[in-house]
């Protein structure tokens, strides 16, 4: 491929967990500190490929699969004015990805267009600016965000055209408290949930006519600052996967990282269904060596029924949410701690990032 830089794959080496198999490794020699990693579909000339997107503070790069588990960098966008904070993937969209830029919090969201049929170019443009607290890319090229100006909160959904430009906008009814995370309700295009700063779950109807706030339900006091990752509706109940970065250790559940909670939207009552706890340190709970003890969950991702997170020990853990068990643990490598853990578009492939910008792809 013209312009692509071939990379040598690193094969399975000294992994302690057999359920993760190293497939390949990407290293952007021009980038320093890894900020985020994601996957996206890239299509040209009638074919579609799953590509990797990596972000450093000042650039976003697109990586294309080559033969034999090798990857080549196809394009890099330079974003030098404001630091990149996160990649905002649009789940079922081809050739289009969004990024959030800012200092301590998101100040603007831009779309990056990978290929334009009109002029074969790589473009970028502003979608939204403001004090943005949360953003999520939804199915069908939609983007939802919450932002605050003084006491006023705006929750807005924007539909993007294939060329990236904003097509339609819709304001959703905001709750009183700040929305900190969003999740689509799988299989229900018009349903959206969010978690708020006072630990509530909010349900909206987003049908492009109304942005009604349908229900607000409290998560409970035992697990403060919950973040929603995924939601499913089944048998009249709303099941939400929550992470608990600030949860305390309890006798019944250890230190919870993720919980599956069932809500009855009619009565606003909830019940914990399954709890996935942090793995114990290698020395065990009673005599935990700080260098190997997985004390806290730092950041993570959920796809289907699999969850992954970077822990304070520098390890990456993987859980089966239906079993409520940790099924794989990737210890820090010789090059240092892991800082990023993301699923590709399926939970069969884990993207693990190191601080120096190296991204490892593991089959799970």
């Amino acid at each position: 491929t013209a312009g692509a830089e071939p990379l040598t794959p690193v094969l399975l080496d000294d992994l302690r967990e057999e359920s993760l198999q190293l497939l390949s490794k990407l290293k952007d020699s021009s980038s320093s500190c890894a900020v985020d990693v994601s996957t996206m579909w890239w299509g040209a000339a009638g074919s579609r490929e799953l590509c990797v997107v990596t972000a450093s503070e000042s650039s976003v790069s697109l990586w294309k699969p080559l033969a034999s588990d090798r990857w080549g960098k196809l394009h890099t966008w330079q974003l030098r004015e404001i630091p990149v904070i996160q990649i905002v993937p649009l789940p079922d969209t081809c050739n289009l990805v969004c990024v959030a830029l800012g200092e301590l919090e998101i100040g603007e969201i831009r779309w990056l267009l990978l290929y334009s049929s009109e002029n074969d170019s790589f473009e970028q443009s502003l979608v939204k600016a403001g004090n943005i607290k949360a953003v999520l890319g939804l199915q069908e090229r939609r983007l939802v965000s919450s932002s605050r100006t003084g006491q006023e909160q705006q929750v807005e959904m924007v539909s993007l055209a294939e060329t990236g430009r904003s097509k339609d906008g819709q304001t959703l009814m905001p709750p009183e408290e700040t929305v900190l995370a969003f999740a689509e309700v799988e299989g229900m295009r018009e349903a959206l949930v969010g978690t708020t700063a006072v630990n509530s779950i909010v349900v909206w109807s987003v049908n492009l006519k109304t942005g009604q706030l349908l229900k607000k339900m409290h998560v409970g006091y035992s697990y403060p600052a919950s973040i929603c990752h995924r939601a499913y509706s089944d048998s009249g109940l709303l099941f939400v996967v929550l992470s608990h970065p600030h949860a305390k250790e309890s006798e019944s559940c250890g230190t919870p990282a993720f919980r599956l909670v069932a809500f009855n939207p009619r009565t606003a009552r909830s019940a914990g269904v399954l709890c996935s706890s942090l793995p114990l340190g290698q020395a065990g709970r009673q005599r935990c060596d700080p260098s190997v003890c997985h004390r806290r969950y730092l950041e993570g991702d959920v796809q289907d029924t699999s969850a992954t997170a970077v822990l304070t020990s520098g390890a990456i853990a993987v859980w089966d949410l239906l079993l409520g068990q940790c099924t794989a643990l990737l210890p820090p490598g010789p090059q240092g701690s892991w800082v990023l853990a993301r699923w590709a578009t399926t939970s069969a492939c884990l993207l693990a990032g190191q601080r120096d910008g190296t991204v490892c792809l593991y089959r799970y």
Partner: peptide, 23 residues
């Protein structure tokens, strides 16, 4: 609280809440 304590369940909760909510 267990799932059996969540009160009466409606399979059409989304449609019902949408109809009841102020526009």
């Amino acid at each position: 609280c267990s799932v059996s304590d969540l009160g009466p369940i409606s399979l059409n909760w989304f449609e019902e809440l949408s109809a009841e909510a102020p526009p």
